[in-house]
Each structure stands twice: as structure tokens, then as C-alpha cells.
Amino acid sequence: MDMKRDWTLPGLTVGFALIAVVGTLVLPDWLMALTVNSFSRALAVLGLMVLWRCGLVSFGHALYYGLGAYVVALLGKDWGISEVLITLPAAALLSGLVGFGIGFIMRRYREIFFAMLSLAFSMVMYGILVKTEALGSTDGFSIEQPSFMGWTPEDATEKLHTIFLMLCFICWAVAALVHRYLQSTLGNLTRAIRDNEIRVEYLGISAQHAVHIKYVMSAALAGLGGAMLAISLGQVDPDSMVNWPVSGELVFVTILSGPGSVVAPFIGSVLFELIRTYAFEWVPGAWQLIVGATLLVIIFFLPGGVWSLISRAIGKREDL
């Protein structure tokens, strides 16, 4: 493996540039909206993937996903700030900060305790939102029209295209950064933590600190993803952003994508959105069945997720 050249960065650059250009030229609006949804989610999945590499599954990242969304919404509602250059970083930063706080507790737990405790935290947040009339309770509320560096789009199509292009850039930058992080010593402390924490400690570094850093990262990324989703949907509500099925969905896409590469979450997320769209059309009422069956198939036959199929295909081509 280590002898081969790493094509991830050029791949990301060319890939996102192509998607941006081709997407703007040919994608119908509904497909573009679907891509925006997918990429927003993929940002959160990217963070979950880093945790998944440590063997950690969070069933509660909708907490940060929703937090990011509500930060954007509240900045507009209470302060009249709709500039994405402010709202997006604010969402990521605040989610990261909350993640930093909760991380002090989370970093002590592994396996199912980690999963269940994160679920509990997210459900507390859900409970608070549902009971808070000022935040629209279960209905949520709508978000101010976003402005992009002072410019506000005139109609829905213009807004969608702008968000799409901006998202392509953000995803490229974030994926490249995460990729670089994964190549660092700290970033490599993923499988090591999953395999043997005792050894990690006796090598002179705290496994808990390493998990904490990754947890904060994943929280910030989920917040960013949620913020993007909120901006593109134009509204926030607890059930589609904070409730536990949302966390389950994020976990599902993480497993579907596979931990192999930072590219995987984007492919997995688009795939997920496509399956969902067609499932609702062709076999309404069997959505959970499809998700469940897919998850089982991946666990048993494709532990590396969809990415492992792609990396195998690429591997073969290189052999030729």
C-alpha cells in the first residue's frame, strides 16, 4: 500500500471541479437539490467516519447536526445575520465548542456505551427543542434568506446554484483537510485506538485526548453539515434534524460509505439519497426495510462499504 502514490487529493480536486461545472450546466434543479442534501450530510458523515475508524459509533450526532442548523436559523431570527461567511463558521464553531464540552465525558466511553451515551445527549437536546415554544416547538421555524458575501440571490434557482457551488468548494476544502489530518500521527491514531488503547498509552500519548480531538472534529463537521442543510431547506425543525432517526441515518450512511477514504462519504451520501428517492417512488412504505436489508448486506458482505468496491476497481486498473 505505502508504495503506491496517493491519488486522493488530485481526485478530490478534479472530482469536485467536474461536479461543480457539469452540475451547473446539466443538472436539473431537483437533482441539484438532492446533491446539496447529500453533500451537506456527507460533511457530517466525514466526521463520523473518523470516529468509525476508531471503532466508535455515535448514535447521537444529530445533536450537532441540529445544533448547526439552529445556530444558522437563530442568527438570522434574533440578530438578522444571514451572511453565510458568518453563519457557517459560527455553526461549526459552536457545534465544535459543545462537542468539546461533552467530549470530556464521551472520551471515557467506548463501544455501546459511547453509542448509547451520545444518543442520550442528543435526546436531551431534542426534548429541549420540542418543549421550547420560542423555537417553534415541533414545527420549528423558517430561516432568513441567506446572503453570500453581501449578495442575496433573487430567486430559488439562483439560490440553489449558489449554494451548490459554495458547497462543492466547502466539501473539497474540508475533505482535503480531513485527508491531510488522517495522514498525521494523530490522524493515524484511529485503528491504533480501536486495536489496543493500552499500547497507545504506553507509547506516551493519551487515547482519551486523541478521541476527544476526533470527537470535536466530528461535532464541528456535523454542525457545518447541518448548517448547510438548513440554509438550503430554508427552515429548521427538531424531527428532521435532531431526532434519533436522523442520527441513525448518519450512521447508516457512514457504514454504507465505508471508512476507506475521505471520498467515500460523498459517494455514499449521494447513493443513499438516490436510493431513498427511488424507493419512495417505487416501493412506498418499504423504506426502512430497504435500509435495514442494505445495512445487513454491508455488514456481512461488504465491511469496507461502497468505497471498498471502488478501491478494488481502482486497484485492478493500476495492476494492468
Binding site: 457504514i255 426495510l289 435500509v291 435495514g292 436489508a293 445495512l295 445487513l296
Partner: peptide, 28 residues
Amino acid sequence: CLIQFMYGRDEVIIVLATFATFLILEDL
């Protein structure tokens, strides 16, 4: 049909597998 093939695997993987089963049984 399912659980007996999961013995010895990661606890988290088993949680995911039973979660998948739950989703399937919900729709059934």
C-alpha cells in the same frame, strides 16, 4: 438466521446488525 453468525464480532457491529433487523421488522 442472524445472531448466531455474529458471535465474536465487535459489539458495535452487532448493534448495527440488530438495528438493521429492527428496521426490517418494523416495515414487515
